[in-house]
């Protein structure tokens, strides 16, 4: 079985972010990068299917700037067979393909001559939270899409999934090829050790530019974006919160409830 995993590299969620001078992107000079957590679930699921079935190949597809190479190395160390990196470093102002439509167009073009039975993507990338690239890719490639999957069973021709829906779960099936997105709970991603990561440095990455996959950079970046960032700001500061002093838990509780009622007016 040929499995494609769509992976995005995102700023490490632990670290603060700075807004760039342009005010429409973040300053990535000191950014520490990581694999989008939902894409770790996708990588793990692809590897589990491969291990269970044997005779399978896992191909990673990622769109991003130069430093994505780091994330690819981690994916290789996890066990991915091949990686395709479409380098979209054409326009600093549109960091990391914040626009899902252009990203999806790039992915669909890159997949033109990659055979696949199943595509696994994350439900969302935790930098832009767009929940959109998988739907766009599925639409362009005319594939059934099953989102927020917590469990799957795949035969050579069909995929059966349990997915999270509002208020519960659904069991659904689709014919292959299909695209699914992952939800927490589907698996526990493996952590490759340092040695495996070092060894993965030797692996070759199939790096391509937009022109290589038949796309005109003119139509990408800010030009092709369907959601254009006009400005960025930090959320309003909560200020230094009030520390509630009191001689006992009961007294603190009393003061809190009074503040919630009189000052904050929320109860």
């Amino acid at each position: 079985m040929n499995i494609v995993v769509l992976m995005k590299q995102v700023p490490d969620t632990e670290a603060p972010v700075e807004i760039a001078e342009s005010n429409v992107a973040i300053d990535t000079e000191d950014t520490k990068w990581a694999i989008n957590p939902y894409d770790e679930f996708s990588l793990e699921e692809a590897l589990l299917i491969k291990e269970a079935k044997g005779d399978s190949k896992v191909t990673l597809v990622t769109v991003g700037p130069d430093h994505v190479a780091e994330a690819i190395r981690v994916a290789y160390a996890m066990g991915v067979d091949e990686a395709i990196h479409i380098n979209d470093e054409i326009d600093d102002e549109v960091y990391g393909a914040v626009d899902p439509h252009t990203t999806a167009a790039i992915i669909a073009a890159a997949l033109k001559d990659v055979p696949f039975d199943l595509i696994i993507a994350g439900q969302r990338a935790v930098d832009d939270d767009s929940y959109l690239v998988p739907a766009l890719v599925a639409n362009k490639l005319n594939l059934p899409i099953i989102s927020l999957v917590t469990k799957q069973e795949t035969t050579d021709t069909e995929i059966n999934c349990v997915q999270s829906i509002d208020g519960g779960t659904a069991v659904v099936k689709a014919a292959l090829p299909a695209l699914i997105t992952t939800q927490k709970g589907i698996n526990e991603p493996r952590y490759p050790n340092f040695r495996a990561i070092m060894k993965a440095k030797k692996k070759k990455v199939d790096e391509r530019e937009l022109e290589d996959i038949g796309l005109d950079p003119e139509n990408f970046g800010i030009n092709g974006a369907k959601v254009k960032i006009r400005s960025m700001e930090f959320p309003p500061e909560r200020g230094q919160g009030k520390i509630i002093e009191g001689s006992s838990p009961a007294e603190k509780a009393k003061i809190l409830v009074n503040l919630l009622k009189e000052e904050a007016s929320v109860i």
Partner: peptide, 20 residues
């Protein structure tokens, strides 16, 4: 339509123009 939404796990609020 113009929207405000969070990016980067709520660390940033962006104003975005929706095209189409």
């Amino acid at each position: 339509l113009v929207a405000k939404r969070t990016l980067f796990g709520g660390k940033i609020i962006a104003t975005v123009d929706i095209e189409g």
